[in-house]
């Protein structure tokens, strides 16, 4: 019974704390000196130009990349329970795995590496597929699906992960309006359930219309807070001045920790 309780843990508790966090590769920061926090239950859009460090930041929150400096702490959600949707390029879409098997990975926490699937699991998978509009796709294999269908399948897996903290990296890129809207509906639903959702986005209209909080970054935090105050012409202009290139001989960064 205690196991059961765990699986329906209160989804309203996940928070993220940044303390002078710097993440990047090979001593070069992709984004540095992030201070602040993401409160439980918030819906945050991360925006910024290409190369601003958006994906790297998400990867670091998911625990896949240790910070070069400082600290990123996830509270109220164990690292292994974080639901993270990377950009599609990281998944081998040519692999002939049935949609059922792929989505059932989302039940990892309750089923584990070796456990069997029971009727309840079957129903959960079918339910998640129906929610994303792919009812009856269980036996189709991943390599026969279109890009939009794969993205729906990934969302179905996110549903089954039932995580208090959901990280989405450009989830609506290259989708048609109908698919994009349906999936956005799911994201807003998660927000309404009290889950913490952090999403990398490019469509500023979408951000303005649906996301209460925005984090504008350009290898550093440019602005962070209420979306209406963050997305301003001035702020967007300042991100264009960002240098994307690595300087191999860049001096050691001497940023003062105190704000």
């Amino acid at each position: 019974m205690s196991l059961m309780r765990q699986s329906v843990a209160d989804p309203r508790k996940a928070a993220i704390r940044f303390r002078n966090a710097t993440v990047g590769y090979d001593r070069h920061p992709a984004i540095h000196h992030v201070n602040g926090g993401i409160e439980p239950g918030s819906l945050v859009a991360v925006i910024g130009p290409n190369g601003a460090g958006k994906s790297t930041l998400l990867k670091a929150i998911a625990g896949l990349l240790p910070p070069l400096d400082g600290e990123i702490r996830v509270e109220g959600c164990p690292r292994r329970r974080v639901a993270y949707l990377p950009q599609q390029s990281e998944i081998d879409r040519s692999f002939p795995i049935p949609v059922f098997d792929f989505i059932a990975m989302g039940l990892w926490r309750s089923v584990g590496l070796f456990g069997g699937f029971d009727r309840r699991a079957d129903e959960a998978v079918a339910g998640a597929l129906a929610t994303v509009g792919l009812a009856g796709f269980e036996r189709r294999t991943l390599d026969t699906l279109s890009g939009g269908q794969v993205q729906r399948v990934l969302f179905a897996r996110l549903i089954l992960q039932d995580s208090p903290l959901i990280l989405l990296d450009e989830p609506f890129t290259a989708l048609d309006d109908a698919t994009s809207e349906a999936l956005l509906g799911l994201v807003l639903g998660w927000h309404a359930e009290g889950r913490t959702v952090v999403t990398v986005l490019h469509d500023l209209h979408q951000v303005r219309d649906h996301f209460p909080t925005t984090m504008l970054i350009a290898r550093r935090v440019v602005a962070w807070g209420d979306t209406r105050t963050v997305i301003t012409a001035d702020a967007l202009r300042s991100t264009r001045a960002m240098t994307e290139a690595w300087d191999d001989h860049a001096p050691i960064c001497r940023h003062e920790d105190a704000p």
């Binding site: 292994r80 990281e90 998944i91 081998d92 692999f95 792929f102 990975m105 990892w108 991943l142």
Partner: peptide, 23 residues
């Protein structure tokens, strides 16, 4: 037979396995 599921996951979506398990 024992490692079938994690092995398939490792093939198709190694990133996912890294998040949910250290295996």
């Amino acid at each position: 037979a024992v490692v079938w599921r994690p092995l398939v996951v490792e093939c198709v979506d190694p990133g996912y396995l890294r998040v949910v398990s250290g295996a």
